[in-house]
Simulated assay, not measured.
Amino acid sequence: MRHRPDPALVSLSTGAQLLHHVEALADLLVDTVAGGASVGFLSPFEHAEAAAWWAAQAPLVADGRQTVWIANDAGGQPLGTISLVRADKPNSRHRAEIVKLMVRRDARGRGVGGALLATAEAAALAEGRTLLMLDTETGSPAEALYARRGWTSIGVVPGHAAAPSGEPRPTTFFYKSLSA
């Protein structure tokens, strides 16, 4: 088995930290959309639009509703990212949502996505979040990753989200129960 060096994971837990990384995160988001991943944006998708989207996440990070992690290569360049969004209603403080797991196209298949997912899961559990949810495009490589990592498929909603091309695609919803 080929050795895969672990990416360096950086937690962005303040708005200022996120804003410091906006340009690199925007590059990653543009690459992800250009690669056909259904992460909420349509092609053509420009860097300025991606940077604006990331900058708009800073208030969520600043008030603790969201944490963003970046996996960097040895040179400090982002290979991928993941976010944990906390539920904020009194009856749902035990759960959170995994959003925007993205891995640069030339870094896929190297364990980056799994490392990011494990980090977000561990952080959620450490703060008492015992139920995680997420959704992904049905048939995508991410869907297979979640199944391998112990996530349970709830079901598929046809035409739930559009691919970057604008074509409606089915979405698979997952949950994972965490325990110490």
Rank of each mutant, 00 (worst) to 15 (best):
A122W: 07
V112Y: 11
E127P: 04
T130K: 07
N91Q: 14
G109D: 10
R129Q: 08
M133A: 12
V99M: 08
M102V: 03
S92Q: 15
G109A: 09
N72Q: 14
L79T: 01
A71Y: 00
G64E: 05
A123V: 06
V68P: 00
R86K: 14
Q77I: 06
T138C: 13
T130I: 09
T136Y: 08
T138S: 14
S92V: 04
L116D: 05
G111W: 04
G114M: 02
G111Q: 07
R95V: 02
G80E: 03
G75P: 04
D135A: 09
A142M: 11
G76T: 05
Q66W: 01
K89G: 12
I70M: 15
A87E: 11
R104V: 02
K89A: 13
A122L: 10
R86C: 07
L84Q: 01
G111P: 08
A120R: 02
S83E: 06
R95C: 12
T119R: 15
D88H: 11
A107N: 13
L116I: 03
A142C: 10
G111T: 06
T67W: 02
G64N: 09
T81P: 00
R110W: 00
A71T: 01
R108T: 10
A120T: 01
I98M: 15
P90G: 03
L101V: 11
R93M: 12
T67P: 00
L101C: 03
E137S: 10
L134H: 07
G76H: 06
R110A: 11
A120H: 05
L125I: 08
D73Q: 06
S140G: 11
A118M: 05
R65Y: 02
G111I: 04
I98C: 12
